[in-house]
Amino acid sequence: MNLSLPFTLNDIADYFPFLKRKPGRFVTPSGAEVHAIIAQFATPADVYHAAEKVRDAGYTRWDVHTPFPIHGLEEAMGIKRTILPLIAGSVGLGGAAVGFLLQLFISTDYEIVVQGKPFTAWEPFTPVTFELGILHCAFATLIGMLALNGLPRWHHPIFNSKRFLKSSDDGFFIAIEAADAKFEPNAVKALLESAGGTGIELVES
């Protein structure tokens, strides 16, 4: 299914200069920009060790693609701990506070006499405060996780490689992007080869 828009991002960028994409540093003979060089690895252990090598070589714009999360890969890749728990926690507490204030407002705005109990007693508000805290925290977790990942997105140039689709089955990949300041095609190829990568492939943008 092909849904194409009658304009490109660069057309919009005529009006919003900050959207303009920088031209790629590397172009293939056919004229397309290079997105990345990918290499496939046979096992989780192989990709794990290769990731350590790429990390130590000092690349920054690169990624490992595996069908499932590999234990300890974030250390092998040198990823900083995510701030997601902070987002989830603060939104959750905020949601609980909003929930409490909502009940306080409603119970004083429309006073229902029930067994002569005070209108602003906090105890009966506990369950709803708790539930609303959880609800907000859950939304913050899912939406925050996706937003930090830059998702949702409709397309990504890495999907141009048919081989890469194996990453959702049993293929383990490392992709080093052309946008990396250290990117130099021959050096990247040599590094991935020495790390044990096979089927090294250039992915066009």
Binding site: D63, F68, M145, N149, I158
Partner: peptide, 16 residues
């Protein structure tokens, strides 16, 4: 929604 099995994504996914 464009999931591409990225290691950086998996890290946040597991935290989530």
């Amino acid at each position: 929604i464009g999931w591409r099995f990225s290691g950086r994504h998996w890290h946040r996914y597991e935290a989530a």
